[in-house]
Design a protein around this nucleic acid. Sequence first.
DNA 1: TTCGAAAATTGACATAGATCAATATTTGAA
DNA 2: TTCAAATATTGATCTATGTCAATTTTCGAA
Lengths: 258, 258
Amino acid sequence: MTPQKKVLDFIGSSKATKTHCSTCSLNALCLPIALEDDDLDTLDKVIKRGRPIQKGEMLFKQGDDFHAIYAIRTGAIKSFTVAPSGEEQITGFHLASEITGLSGYSEDVYPLSAKALETTTVCELPLDKLEVLCDEISGLRKQIMRNMGSEIRQDQQMMLQLSKKSADERLAYFLLELSGRFERRGFSPKSFRLSMSRVDISNYLGLAVETVSRIFTRFQKNELIATEGKEITILNMQELNSLAGNPNLNSECVAQHQ
Amino acid sequence: MTPQKKVLDFIGSSKATKTHCSTCSLNALCLPIALEDDDLDTLDKVIKRGRPIQKGEMLFKQGDDFHAIYAIRTGAIKSFTVAPSGEEQITGFHLASEITGLSGYSEDVYPLSAKALETTTVCELPLDKLEVLCDEISGLRKQIMRNMGSEIRQDQQMMLQLSKKSADERLAYFLLELSGRFERRGFSPKSFRLSMSRVDISNYLGLAVETVSRIFTRFQKNELIATEGKEITILNMQELNSLAGNPNLNSECVAQHQ
DNA sequence: TTCGAAAATTGACATAGATCAATATTTGAA
DNA sequence: TTCAAATATTGATCTATGTCAATTTTCGAA
């Protein structure tokens, strides 16, 4: 595995750091190329590090001019579209180290809004500067396209969940998917913070709040998970996985014939 | 509105044509820049125009190496993922003039399969050549990213449909969305070919075949649509629109206070 | 043109999860 | 610390749509 420079580590620091990651996170802006120091400096000049965004504040709004993409340094945000009828649909949650705003590429305005779920700090990558950089640094272009590809893949995965899976399967999938993202960020996949409300979760999963709440309690009764405030602990990963319809995802040694 | 060169018109012909389109289709590779003749020649050398693909044949398969994106010249294809559990989920239909295979950018293999719904001809744009071209022609890169952005937007729209809308609303939305795509291709939005089966439609919309079938008959009884073989005619666009939850989408003159 | 298989339609019934309603718990501002 | 508002949980129904089953229609090969 080629060492990869994590641009986000760089973005996160005021000076260029040269951390490497062995596996590339689905959504992080990991570059499969080594950036020259010059390029790092250029990038540094381009990045805007703004004030923290408070819980409930908007990062950008549906219909705003598409002027930047954002790398999240700390915190979490939710993205959602609002239909002409007024219905809101949460299209995704973004955690630290992930990129948001990419769908703006569709037509020069953001087709969705992004709101902070907790106090959040971001790096703004202004589009005009990024455009120039993309032409200069071919690897950067590739990596942004890779990120967009991942978002497409993730959304299509979600379509499958929404159209084919039961409520139990959806919640199990949701928790495991989150868990995996924390793991890739180097945190424990067993215990993490659920910064979104039950309403947000139910909206995202296409279920009623009551249904989600009921399943949470049942999962706890069955000792699949434990919750304490916003913290959640996954007690039985194996079982949760099979519930989610992934017979043996995280199992290292479930050897079976055939 | 700036005249835009339709690369697909070019791709469709053996010699460079210079057609323009006034409005840019959501998914077509319309360039908002004018290509130089040199660039057109370069592009011409890159494009592979293969044998027609017969109904039921695969264009590419989930897990195949990501080596090309495809512009559809004639015909129609469906894209679908198959979950570890074996369930299939159709993630989209692609008609002539649209681009498919973009989600391959996520991780060097196609995360989904594409199968022809009828005899289909495509232009293959090999990735390696395209990469080089993207570096040379900045507008090309932008346009491909725009296409990816549109796909994200479309998928997220679909998430809303799948998680919030009733069966009636979904089918109405589906028909209108298709209609719109035909219109943008310069065909009648009122009468077009439904090349996908009821099973395909139901799978895509997250419904049972029986439900879709029932709604088709009901829509016909209510004189919203008429079908004859694979041809469908939209009789009452207005009503269908309000059913789909878009109170006044195509209405030019539904002026209302507020 | 005919025939068998695949696709579509229609009907009867079952159920997962929505909805409505009441209560409990958490949060955060004073 | 206290209290009101927001959020979450639990219970009792109701319903849209899935499932199973039986025709009917369409399609494509011989």
